[in-house]
Structures are given as structure tokens and as C-alpha cells.
Design a protein around this nucleic acid. Sequence first.
RNA 1: GCCCCCAUCGUCUAGCCAGGUCCAGGACACCGGCCUUUCACGCCGGCGGCAGGGGUUCAAAUCCCCUUGGGGGCGCCA
Length: 466
Amino acid sequence: MAEVITRFPPSPTGHLHLGGARTALFNWLYARHHGGRLVLRFEDTDRERSKKEYVESILEALKWLGLDWDEGPYFQTERLELYQKYARKLFEEGKAYYCECTKEELETKRKQMLEKGLKPRYDGTCREKGLGPGEGRALRLRVEAVGEVVFEDLLRGKISFPAEEIDDFIIMRSDGTPTYHFAVVIDDFTMGVTHVIRGDDHISNTPKQILIYQALGIEPPRFAHIPMVLGRDGARLSKRHGARSILEYRDEGYLPEALVNYLAKLGWGYGDQEYFTVEELIKLFDIKDVNLSPARFDPDKLLAVNAYWIRNSDASYLLSQLKPFLKEYELDKFSEDYLKAAIETVKTRAKTLVEMAKMMDFYLVEEVEYDEKGEKKFFVKEVLPALEKIKAYLEEKELEEKEFEAFLRGLAEEMGLKLKLIAQAMRLALTGKTVSPGLFEIIKVLGKERVIKRIQKAINFIKARN
RNA sequence: GCCCCCAUCGUCUAGCCAGGUCCAGGACACCGGCCUUUCACGCCGGCGGCAGGGGUUCAAAUCCCCUUGGGGGCGCCA
């Protein structure tokens, strides 16, 4: 089988969002699955809106997701001569002609046609003028309005458009830059792209591109139009829901594994399997299994997938991912084993790394601050003797779970207190919170020294108040 | 307005291509329960869907048509 070359062509007019990331992922998976290559190129011919900062942020987001590329990044603005070369060829062969209509004239005509209920299309004013290149002149493709333009979509089969639907569209702007359709075709052709995997909002664009291929006398690549990602409300992705930068998800404590897993499942599935490693995705992914209907983005599900990957990742990986969220603590003071043990106790409880960092703060501070409601409820003078006894116990005995638990139960009975009260007071003493990992786990990680110190502090606190 | 694409639980999906094994399976969310010193995890159970209407067929979620609904395109944006 011939080599597979896919491409991801973002336009640097915004951050990489979920929709773009999924397109990138599908292209990447397809290339990796077939042992092919992925080309990255920036479609930056819209100089007004393209920004260097977006190039940077898109690259950063792709790297973070783990989507690497084999060629590029190319920039269309650096390839202008190439487009001009092919444009000249089409002009010389009479397959394209120059048009001197102004933007304003065209805009007026378009509005008029729309008002009359007609399909807006170029009226051919300059078609037979025989104009040559010149200031203010754009190059249009000469399109014959007969028959049908047909292409085979890898997912949907044959798709055809009446040729009369397509007008003489512009391929080179009057400033000498190519329009999207033309640049895409020239790029895909010269880069050897074999498979174009893109959002289905491009279906209606495809016949135009087919026409360019035909005019150039070259073979079009294979097309696969994947369904778009919609927002929670079923509308196109917007800032409100999901069109946020991928990097924002990173900063909110999502794991790249979770994003990749979730995005892959948006429009694609493999039986009942819900969770996939990247390796599994590469192995199992087949573009033909991709759904045809648009998928809504569901933040709850993303969160659930993230929680899954957090609790199923090992502690040392989580530690590396967690570090940016732990900046306010002096991590150097703790051994890696200590940090990893601490992480183990919170990883089934945190849905994001941000949550995890908050949850484990008590491991990382010298002294804890008590939750106000909890302190009023559980730091009552009745628990004082219990805390004293626990402290004494810990000072003497080896720590063993069953034994310690039996001791606490015995203690509760002996003092006529509820086990819950003692446990919550302990929890508060050790963590400052009323919600935390299991008591025994915490004690084991913190170590007797810290535990005894914290119990003593709690004792002093209760005494001082009563 | 015209053209194109799509249609299974609230959401993501399995099943559809090769009709019967589907009074439709899984996941998220939600609601119960178990576990339990808190919160999670885990486990058990519940809620909930083939958009509607016509065909074809012994038999349709699966094939065909129409309607409706959703999405997209119609730029010297990509």
C-alpha cells in the first residue's frame, strides 16, 4: 500500500479548540495507524486575522496533547511564489481569467441576489473581457456549469453537486495572495497529501477544490469529512462552551490522556470500550468507523474521563503533571516517595489536578488551618481525653491498621463517644478539613512525628478555647 | 432562498453496510442501595431512546420514499 500522508492545517486566527484538536487527532491517528506521515501547515493567508501568538499557542497545544508531526510547520505566506506559479499556468491555459470587479460591487450584487431568493453567485461580468493581470484584479477560475461535480467521501460514499451551483470563484486575490481553496489544493498536491480528513463543514467546499484539481489536470486526494463538534446546546462551538483553548483545559488540571480519550470517542467508538490509551487508539482507530452525525461536547463526560485517567495513572506520572499546580508549596522539603504516597491517597478522589492539589495541601504545609465549621462541631472538650490517648498510643505502638482501628473503636466505647466524633476530630487535627482520605492512610503517609505534633496542636487549640 | 450533510436514552455511543440472535447493549449525568470514621473509589439496582409517517418483506433500529428536526455551505474568511 502506498504511503499515507495526512495533514493538519490550522489557521492561526485563534487558539486550538476542541473541534480543531479532534481533527488533528483523527489525522494523527490515521497517519500513525497506517505508518504514514502527518504534515503540519499554517493557513495564514488571512493577514488581517492571523497572529503569531496563535501559532505559538497551537504548537504548544499540539505538543501537550502528544500529537507530533513529521513535516512542517509550513506557512502559506512563505509559499506565495508557488501559488503564483500555478495560477499563471491556469491563466495561460485559459482556465482562469482576471476580474476587475470591486469588493463593493460584488457585495452589492450578492445582497441583491440573496434578497431575490437566488443563490448568490458571480454573474460573469469579466468572464469574456480578456483582461490580463493588473492592479486591483483578482483571478477567477472559469467554471463550466454543466453536469455534476462528484467525489467519493471515505465515510459517506458518493457526494455530488450540480455544477451550476458553483460560480467562477476567486483563486488569487487582487493582492497576489491565494484564496483558501487554491492554497489548499496546491499545498495538498505539492505536499503529497493522500488523505484529507477535515470537518464536514468543508463538504460544500470540496467541489470547488475538485474543480481546481481538474483544471490543473491532477488527481485529487481521498476525502473523509468528519462530523463537527457542537457545543452543549447543539450550536456550533463558541467561546461559551468548548471553543476554549485546549491549553485552558491543561491549566484547569486535565490530563492530555483524558482529552485525547474523550476527543477520540466524540464521533468514533470501538464496541463498548470507553477508555483507550493512545497506543490502543493507534491500533484500533479506523476512519471508516467514524460517525456521520455531529457530536455535542459534554463537559461532564470529559470530567469523568479525566477522573478515570487520574485514578488510573501511577503516582510518579501524576507528580510530574501536578508540579505546576503545587508551585506555592516548598516541594523540595519532601522526598519523592513522600509526595507519591500522598498522591496515592487522593487520586481516587480528585477529578482534576487542580482539585488534587487542593486536596493534598495538608501534606505540604507545616501547620494546618482548621475548617471553621468543623472545628466548632468536632473540637469539643469531650474529645480531649481521646486525643490524648491516641497521641500516647502513637508514641508507643507500631502502626498497624487493624490494630489501630480496634484501638479507636475501643476508645470510643470506653469514653462513651461516637467513633465518628473521634475520627472527625482526628481528621480535623491532621488535615484541617472535615473531608479527606482515610485516617489510617493519612497517618501512614504523614508519619508519626508530624501526626503527634498535629494532635498536640489540636489539644492545645481545644484547651485554649474552652 | 438555493445546495449539501446528518438523525438510537438528556449527552457520547454499540447495533445499521451483509434485515431475524434487540420488547435495543455500554458509558456520562441523575436517583436508590451496599461498603464506610468523612469524601471518594468499587459493587448492585433504577430512570431513560430506535424523530414521525408511508412503503418493501414472513420479519425493519437495520433497506427505500416523504415529512419534520438539526448542522453546514453559498466571501478578494479559513
